[in-house]
């Protein structure tokens, strides 16, 4: 895969994106440009639409208006350059697959229909498991892992995708301090190799330390830019300071009317 640095197109460009659940808008008119090689935190209160933004970028949720371009193309044409870490609760951990099986799924995007993973794919999956220090658990059924271990398996799966842009939905939820440090170290390493990472995060206390760019959301884009410039009392107040009463009232009315 080409390194992002040499690619003239932006990893992510969003124009006037509006997303609605059951006709009730949760994201309004988002405009966003993410330059290559950034470690970006997506921050905002509960229900601000952080996960919705991630899903809408990948077309998992339909946009009511606006467009998304990934490396200058529609998502479908660039999907092989995007790695994804969904929320941990989004899957059934009793599902009868092993840790290795799950990490190999990261390679499926590169395989043809009906093609089995090759020895090369297995080798990459092993390396990715080693990076998150989960190789000793490769043959375990995924339900027999702690929350932090499950999160690391998801991370290894995203690593196995060998992408240029990573979208991560709450990778720090339910993990212990040691795992959190290990994950952030790994993210920095990816960043140093020119990858772009967009990470949904909920813990304001570590934001300044972790991310060099922030996207502050509350149903609409409050601010986006370098952390040291926009992580200010004033902007945080604007992001978290109460619900946007009129906006959410209108959303409610549209939801009921539709």
């Amino acid at each position: 895969m080409s390194a992002s640095g040499t690619d003239p197109a932006l990893p992510l460009e969003i124009h006037d994106l509006t997303v609605a659940y059951h006709k009730k808008p949760v994201l309004y008119g988002i405009d966003l440009e993410i330059p290559a090689g950034k470690l970006v935190g997506v921050v905002g209160p509960n229900g601000a639409g952080k996960s919705t933004l991630i899903k809408a970028i990948m077309g998992l949720l339909p946009a009511s208006s606006g467009w998304v371009k990934v490396f200058g193309k529609p998502y479908r044409e660039s999907c092989h350059r995007v790695g994804y870490v969904p929320q941990r609760e989004s899957v059934d951990w009793d599902f009868p697959v092993s840790v290795m099986d799950v990490v190999l799924m990261g390679r499926y995007g590169r395989l043809r229909l009906a093609q089995r993973p090759t020895r090369h794919d297995r080798e990459i999956a092993r390396e990715c498991l080693e990076k998150v220090r989960m190789l000793p658990f490769a043959n375990r059924q995924i339900g027999n892992l702690s929350g932090g271990q499950q999160q690391r398996v998801f991370l290894a799966r995203a690593l196995a995708q060998e992408s240029d842009l990573y979208l991560m939905d709450e990778p720090f939820v339910g993990v212990d301090a040691a795992t959190e440090t290990a994950i952030i170290t790994l993210l920095r390493e990816l960043q140093s190799r020119g990858k772009t990472l967009i990470v949904v995060h909920h813990d304001l206390s570590s934001v300044r330390e972790y991310f060099d760019m922030l996207v502050l959301l509350n149903m609409r884009l409050v601010a986006a830019g370098p952390t040291r410039e926009i992580f200010t009392q004033e902007i945080l107040q604007a992001t978290y300071g109460g619900r946007l009463t009129i906006l959410s009232d209108v959303a409610q009315a549209i939801g009921e009317g539709g």
Binding site: S90, R157, Q161
Partner: peptide
């Protein structure tokens, strides 16, 4: 047998499968 891989991933994590364009 032929689509074992596809049926597994779409059963386990449909969101992730769609994100890869399946």
């Amino acid at each position: 047998t032929v689509f074992y891989k596809e049926y597994t991933i779409t059963s386990f994590d449909p969101g992730f499968a769609r994100s890869m364009g399946l």
